[in-house]
Nucleic acid binder design. Structure first.
Lengths: 364, 364
DNA sequence: GTGAAAGCGCTAACAT
DNA sequence: ATGTTAGCGCTTTCAC
């Protein structure tokens, strides 16, 4: 069959002509299965050479069409603007590449319409699986995937339409609260005055963390009224106002449980106009290197993005995503220099945690 | 032609059978060109309905193969861990979606081998164009794209193998330096003692900013010796050490030009162990909301990610990416509350800047 | 107005 | 040991 080259990209037919052999032989050789098909080493080398010379590059759309396997894997996340989601994206990509798959990550800005249309596009592009991260209501997306018979996993915010991988928000919050109480005690403050600021009313992660916070206080022999919980949302400005309000109520609390990095950002803004001496102890359920470097006593809980992604791929690999199944991953503690200087011991690793040492090459 | 359904996804043939018509008619209708082909409204509606009922979803791999147009557009970036690259990724996605294209963003961790293999994979996936952001040496990648006849644009770090879109580092640094000098003067400090910290020796952006810094000082009637420039790299720890060194040399400088957010992170870490009163004025060529909220006098230069992406798409749209062409985009100034409180006026918008008001929905 | 047919680049079963 | 062939799902020209 005579084919004239479209544009300039060479196909296996071009290679076949140039190497004086057939397209199927070229295909076999290029896919490494030429040994199995006992193709002469000489022929194989000739093909490999001309392919290299012509700068041949497989057309994965054609291969995908033929094999009904695109080698595309998708993930949606709300955005890249904090370390948690940025980390999820990078880990997902690394894991996908390690498997010879092409990762497609798309941010959806927490907009349900965008989420839906992005998922539809990904399905149309024939992704082999989809990880749905940080979506408030993943159910309709899970339905979309199911109808297209593609496996999906909910990450961070769970849903009932597929398996979900989530951080152990409650246990993490208990641990964080316990340490916060102990630091406040150590500084001579009254732990009963500790406050909780940040997060969204009714949101899974927030409510779990509130529950953990209250449980942690109770374990320390402190009972706190619900009124003390300030679920002011995720905007820094709102958090700042919450802190202003708290400051207006009397002496500032000796410790605060800050839910999310944006709420902590609100706290630093608040600090700009209020000189607090001594500064309160901050426990933040979230992590950011800039915040961690602050000259403030702050302990942070960092979600284990590597484990979260590994577990998500494990579900996909297993071939089934049982509706409603929950896989829980513990977060890990990070302590600021300001706390370490105060004599806080290094945190002991939570049992069963994946503690791969990861050299993070920080750059601009 | 009889076809048995693979898996469960319906094809135009399934729709055709169910709607008692032919695959070509279904295709015409589904692509909206049925008016042009004067297909009966009744037929069209019947097809549309059965397509919806069957949850039909176009196979874009097949369409791409047929049309030699994948509707995929690619971008590579070093990582998502700062606001600049995160912003680039999000803008690129938004712009791509607005054009009905599927964005593929992949992070390459500043590793030349990864960069190369990711670009090869993207070419194999038939991306229609590629934006290469933050790559030290884009030349070999430009060659790869050229051989595959796909348009590419270098972003942030320029190269000679294609057109490049870059921030106006030099003019930005001059502006930043001028303001820094004026703030230092206003605080009664000696501007001749201002220092430059951060960045990588020989890197395009760093050298441009150093040149702008020196030019800015000169314009203010100050001549600074080259020895004062501390290109300590992008790791926060190295920056911190640089600050320790500077502190050891005598009274701390009244102002510092900090190149990159990681260097600023090093500065905050340094601040934890050194009480400086009054604090030095900080001018940072980079932007981060957390840093901007710090109770410190800091002015920041934010790269205009929207304009950078818009210009990159403009090159792609034009159909040619002239080797070596440079398109320059001015950055914009951001001033911390601590500076505003000191009576600093609001920055005037640089002329010709794309100043779309963008409501940034910050969340966790 | 609608259908038949060819072919995008690739793979794999089946011939030779 | 290698070539022939039949599609994967889609678009579009041409025929009826």
């Amino acid at each position: 069959m005579a084919r004239k080259p479209t544009g300039r990209r060479s196909t296996i037919y071009d290679i076949a002509t140039a190497a004086e052999t057939s397209a199927s032989t070229v295909s076999l050789v290029l896919n490494g299965s030429w040994e199995r098909y006992r193709i002469k080493k000489e022929t194989a080398e000739r093909i490999l050479n001309t392919a290299k010379a012509k700068g041949y590059n497989t057309n994965l759309q054609a291969r995908g069409l033929r094999l009904s396997r695109s080698s595309l894997v998708g993930m949606i996340i709300p955005h890249y603007r904090n370390r948690f989601f940025a980390g999820l994206a990078e880990c997902f990509e690394a894991e996908a590449r390690a498997r010879g798959l092409t990762p497609i990550v798309v941010s959806t800005q927490r907009d349900a319409k965008t989420e839906r249309s992005v998922v539809e596009t990904m399905i149309a592009q024939q992704v082999e699986c989809l990880i749905i991260a940080g979506v408030d209501d993943p159910d309709p997306l899970n339905v979309l995937c199911e109808r297209a018979t593609i496996l999906c996993v909910n990450l961070d915010l769970p849903g009932e339409g597929a398996a979900s991988v989530v951080t152990d928000n409650r246990a993490g919050a208990i641990e964080l609260t316990t340490r916060l109480v102990s630091l406040v005690n150590g500084a001579g403050g009254d732990p009963a005055r500790i406050r909780f600021v940040g997060g969204r009313q009714g949101e899974f992660a927030t409510e779990e963390r509130v529950a953990g916070f209250l449980a942690g206080l109770e374990q320390a022999g402190i009972s706190a009224p619900k009124a003390e919980i300030e679920r002011c949302g995720y905007r820094p400005g709102a958090a700042r106002q919450a802190f202003e309000r708290i400051a207006g109520e009397g002496p500032f609390p000796p410790g605060v449980f800050v839910n999310s990095i944006t709420a902590l950002e609100g706290f630093t803004a608040f600090l700009g106009s209020h000189r607090l001496a001594p500064p309160p102890v901050i426990a933040c359920f979230d992590w950011d290197p800039f915040a961690a470097a602050l000259p403030l006593p702050v302990i942070m809980l960092r979600q284990n993005v590597e484990a979260l992604i590994a577990q998500s791929f494990a579900v996909v690999d297993s071939g089934v995503s049982e509706r409603g199944r929950r896989i829980v991953v513990p977060p890990t503690l990070a302590v600021s220099p300001a706390v370490e200087a105060d004599g806080e011991e290094a945190p002991s690793p939570p049992p069963g945690t994946n503690r791969k040492a990861r050299k993070v090459d920080r750059d601009g």
